[in-house]
């Protein structure tokens, strides 16, 4: 009974923290565009707070630069359980065009923290991001919440 109630609550209020680990900024502004009245992320009960300490979902963009190698794990540990990591764009998945000879990126993100969902694209359209977050976020949060620690 309590679990069911918790499920409902967790599904309907998701706090999101956006972490740019070194990308071109394109994915970040597409997430900002999601806040716009047209897409209106908040009508699905999702709030972008940019504060890892109260985040349920970490949205990772960017290809993990030098300074993020340790800080990313620190931020991940700061987020309270249950938490879900969604990688937006190609940078966290493969490093995109930056993962070539001469650059200083350490993609993919999954080398550092576990990734629950992936959204490919450079950058993905807001509609694609929205669909992916809604498909994964609520249920994953609820399922992770049910796991025994």
């Amino acid at each position: 009974m309590l679990d069911a109630l918790k499920d409902v609550v967790r599904k309907s209020s998701i706090h999101v923290c956006l972490i740019n680990t070194g990308g071109c900024n394109g994915c970040d502004i597409e997430v900002v565009a999601l806040l716009s009245p047209r897409y209106d992320l908040e009508q699905y009960g999702i709030y972008v707070h940019n504060n890892p300490r109260e985040a349920d979902v970490l949205l990772i963009t960017g290809a993990v630069c030098e300074q993020w190698k340790e800080n990313l794990q620190r931020i991940y540990s700061k987020a309270p359980e249950p938490k879900v990591v969604v990688a937006i764009g190609n940078c966290p998945l493969t490093g995109d065009v930056f993962n070539q000879e001469g650059s200083s990126v350490y993609a993919p993100v999954s080398d550092f923290i576990p990734v629950d969902a992936e959204i490919p694209g450079c950058p993905p359209r807001p509609a694609e991001i929205l669909a992916a977050i809604l498909a994964v976020g609520p249920d994953a949060i609820a399922a992770k919440g049910r796991e025994k620690p």
């Binding site: 190609n90 998945l93 493969t94 995109d96 065009v97 992936e118 490919p120 694209g121 450079c122």
Partner: peptide, 8 residues
């Protein structure tokens, strides 16, 4: 095509 690397 690997969608995870393609920049369209």
């Amino acid at each position: 095509i690997n969608n995870r690397g393609c920049i369209r």
